[in-house]
């Protein structure tokens, strides 16, 4: 990224190749929309180019990327309050290849749908820490850096989020 900052724009391609899936995953789990996430990935990378001078090189590129991604998410939520959350999950299920789970039980499908439902009902703060720790597989330390807080605070928040999710899931299941 420092090379990009120095003016070598084409180095951004390397960063894209390395991180776009991770970024897409985060945005997808946060927004629930693959289409919107693709647009947001584009926006994040555009902002990286435009605001490359703000990258100090102190923190990792990854945390900077998440910082930008969170801002883009906030912007898109404000732009699109009606939040078409998970509306296109079915559409994507086809693309992922329903065949992969064709042998799985109907119950499993049901559980998954319930969990996704529960996830959308979580507050954005709780969903965020769960997505970061469970899907993005980030260490608490890294999450703390992204959220500008302490490791302990992240730990507490993850616990609360998990309890909340569990409650929601169990309530929806029954």
């Amino acid at each position: 990224m420092l090379q990009v900052k120095a003016g070598d724009m084409q180095k951004m391609g390397l960063l894209f190749e390395r991180y776009h899936r991770e970024l897409f995953g985060f945005l997808y789990h946060m927004s629930g929309s693959a289409d919107a996430s693709e647009d947001m990935v584009q926006t994040v990378f555009y902002r990286m180019l435009k605001y490359r001078h703000t990258f100090t090189g102190d923190g990792s590129f990854r945390s900077w990327m998440y910082h930008l991604a969170r801002n883009v998410l906030v912007d898109s939520v404000q732009k699109n309050k009606r939040s078409a959350h998970h509306h296109d999950v079915a559409e994507y299920a086809e693309r992922i290849g329903g065949g992969a789970r064709a042998d799985e039980s109907m119950q499993r499908e049901q559980e998954l749908a319930t969990l996704q439902d529960a996830l959308t009902k979580l507050s954005p703060e709780h969903r965020e820490v769960l997505v970061l720790s469970r899907y993005q597989e980030l260490k608490y330390e890294e999450i703390a850096r992204i959220l500008n807080t302490t490791e302990g605070a992240v730990k507490v928040r993850v616990h609360r989020a998990m309890n909340e999710l569990k409650k929601l899931y169990l309530r929806l299941e029954h």
Binding site: F24, R95, L115, R134
Partner: peptide, 15 residues
């Protein structure tokens, strides 16, 4: 169960 929530592949046009 969370781990089984699928993450779709971004479409090639994204690249």
């Amino acid at each position: 169960l969370m781990a089984t929530v699928p993450t779709p592949e971004p479409r090639p046009d994204m690249r």
